[in-house]
């Protein structure tokens, strides 16, 4: 067996779950479990760490990204891109993430896929005040009617006060860990994306999963959450 190029911060924990695995961007990913369909409506929690990700910051970052056709007008907002999404974190930092549809799972892991993130990563960082940021996130998605209940137990921020149509992004803490939260809706149900530093991964995952299970939810696969 060849060694994977990348591992999710919660790889070990996920391995205990029965399901179908596949390689996404060189990272073994749990893409499907037999419970997915049942759980998803209530509260599904999925690991999306395998998606391509790119960070850049600095006073010159906005102009630099504009060359690639990426702009996010206001701080703490996000924009949908052709093949992913772009988030403006505060004033001068950005996170770009590929969507799964833009990442073929059949590409041999030694060739780089031609995605937005790989184009940015191959970019030229010479201009002043443009600094790439290494992103080694635990990236999660939460989906289902119980998501607000989980957020109430783990986070001080009042998400209900937000207007989702404005594409808000919230930088806050959950269970003591700094997180970026992107609240949205999918099929009429709350759909939240959460990113945190991978080193907190296991703690964060286990705590959220335990709460999700108490609320009648559980783990669902990467592709189930992205292509229900």
């Amino acid at each position: 067996m060849s060694t994977p190029r990348r591992l999710s911060p919660i790889h070990e924990s996920l391995q205990q779950i029965e399901g179908t695995w596949s390689d996404i961007n060189g990272m073994p990913a749990l893409i499907h479990t037999s419970e997915d369909a049942r759980i998803a409506k209530t509260l599904g929690i999925a690991d999306l760490s395998s998606l391509g990700r790119f960070g850049v910051k600095g006073a010159g970052a906005a102009a630099w990204l504009a060359h690639y056709g990426i702009t996010v007008e206001q701080p703490n907002r996000w924009t949908r891109l052709a093949g992913g999404l772009a988030i403006r974190l505060g004033l001068s930092e950005y996170l770009i993430e590929d969507s799964l549809s833009n990442t073929s799972s059949n590409i041999p892991s030694n060739t780089l896929p031609n995605t937005m993130v790989s184009r940015l990563a191959a970019g030229n960082f010479d201009p002043d005040q443009v600094y790439p940021v290494l992103r080694q996130d635990l990236a999660l998605a939460l989906w289902g009617e119980q998501v607000p209940a989980l957020m109430l137990q783990t986070c001080n921020f009042n998400f209900r006060a937000l207007t989702l149509a404005e594409n808000p992004v919230v930088l806050t803490t959950m269970i003591g860990v700094a997180v970026t939260v992107l609240p949205s809706e999918r099929n009429g149900l709350p759909f939240y994306r959460i990113w945190c530093d991978g080193t907190f991964g296991n703690y964060f995952w286990h705590t959220l999963l335990a709460i999700a299970q108490e609320l009648g939810g559980g783990v669902i696969g990467t592709t189930s959450i992205l292509f229900p």
Binding site: P75, N156, T173
Partner: peptide, 17 residues
């Protein structure tokens, strides 16, 4: 819990600062 206003992120509990 005590709160503070971040000029960019708005009102947050003091433990975030």
């Amino acid at each position: 819990m005590k709160q503070m206003i971040c000029p960019i992120n708005g009102t947050r509990p003091i433990v975030e600062f």
